[in-house]
């Protein structure tokens, strides 16, 4: 294999290897290894889902399942305990809410305080749509009308065209 071909292979392989590495490390960062035991697979599934739904209060942009923070570890343990004790999802969410407020939910509850959070984007979409429609309508109304030329205009057009041609030929 010539050096040149070898380089080409390298160029192809290195980004792939990097991508693989990155995705692997992302995989590792995804979830803390749980050593919790559950009675049923459903319980384990609920645990996974709930610890993805709750946000780690300390690290803010990580779910409970992805966080190494101390309080996240404690809260995962509490979620496990409550699931094994047979509490419903709603009861577990209430437990979290009473202590950490709406902040704990990645998907906040629909209350008066979170109304803007939920529907703010829709509001802005509506506003944007309104502006676009207005601009579009204005553009249509103000479009110059293309009508027939009368005789005088037609003659003037021809004269200008002839003049232009004459100037062009001279240059």
């Amino acid at each position: 294999m010539s050096i040149c071909a070898f380089n080409r292979v390298l160029v192809a392989i290195v980004p792939l290897a990097l991508m693989l590495l990155l995705s692997l490390s992302a995989e590792i960062a995804q979830g803390q290894v749980d050593t919790f035991e559950f009675d049923t697979p459903e319980q384990q599934q609920r645990f996974r889902r709930l610890s993805d739904e709750f946000r780690c209060p300390m690290c803010q942009n990580t779910s409970l399942s992805g966080s190494t923070g101390g309080v996240a570890e404690d809260l995962r343990r509490e979620v496990h305990r409550m699931i094994v004790e047979g509490l419903t999802d709603a009861e577990i969410e209430q437990f979290m809410f009473e202590r950490y407020g709406d902040f704990i939910f990645y998907k906040p509850r629909l209350t008066r305080e979170t109304l803007l959070l939920w529907f703010g984007p829709l509001l802005f979409l509506g506003l944007g749509g309104f502006v676009v429609v207005r601009i579009w309508r204005n553009a249509q109304n103000n479009a110059p009308e293309i009508g027939e030329l009368d005789d005088a205009e037609q003659r003037r057009l021809e004269r200008l065209a002839a003049e232009t041609t004459r100037l062009k030929d001279r240059s």
């Binding site: 300390m58 923070g69 101390g70 309080v71 570890e73 404690d74 509490e78």
Partner: peptide, 13 residues
């Protein structure tokens, strides 16, 4: 030690 009382207080660190 377990941080359990901290949870009841809503402590995050």
């Amino acid at each position: 030690e377990s941080g359990r009382f901290g949870i009841d207080l809503g402590v995050y660190g």
